[in-house]
């Protein structure tokens, strides 16, 4: 965790400096104190301070040494190739495609059915049931779920759907 703390605190320090610089550049009417940038400036300063403390704690707990150990080609490659990382990346990519591309381009039912089906195939979620093969089960569940969500929300609950 110490290595993670060091990495996170460095990112936090950079981010808080960005907040401080941006806040100082924001326009104000009468005085800076009641301007839009005053409170974000305080928040940025507090985050900077907390980031420095976290960095100090991380360094004291051997975070830099641990980070140096981790930050070599073979460990990074092993991390990238690990099952967990690959699964999370693939799931996130599927979500991005679904929410940024499919929704708005295709009707909700089609977009959702495709997303659920692709997920099931990737995760190996649907097994053979009775005489119905797994992929066919995946198609059935995906389409039924998409239709149920759409009409359940739209007609059943009067919610506007994408």
């Amino acid at each position: 965790m110490a290595a993670k703390d060091v990495a996170f605190s460095i990112a936090l320090i950079i981010f808080s400096i960005y907040i401080i610089v941006t806040s100082l550049g924001l326009k104000y009417n009468t005085s800076f104190i009641d301007g839009a940038g005053f409170f974000p400036l305080i928040v940025g300063c507090v985050l900077l301070l907390l980031g420095i403390v976290l960095l100090y704690v991380g360094i004291r707990c051997g975070g830099v040494k641990r980070l140096q150990e981790i930050m070599n080609g073979s460990t990074i490659l092993a991390f990238i190739k690990s099952d967990e990382t690959v699964r999370v990346v693939v799931l996130v990519v599927m979500m991005v495609i679904y929410m940024y591309v499919l929704i708005g381009w295709l009707p909700f039912i089609a977009a959702t059915a495709i997303y659920i089906f692709v997920n099931y195939m990737y995760l190996g979620a649907c097994k053979k049931c009775w005489i119905i093969p797994g992929p066919v089960m995946a198609v059935i569940i995906s389409v039924v779920a998409a239709i149920a969500i759409y009409y359940g929300m739209k007609i059943g609950l009067g919610i506007t759907m994408p």
Binding site: M99, A125, I141, T160
Partner: peptide, 17 residues
């Protein structure tokens, strides 16, 4: 594994609504 993708679709509907 069957439930979670359906939940993602529900979160989409919830965020849009």
């Amino acid at each position: 594994k069957i439930l979670m993708p359906i939940i993602v679709a529900l979160t989409v509907a919830g965020a849009y609504a």
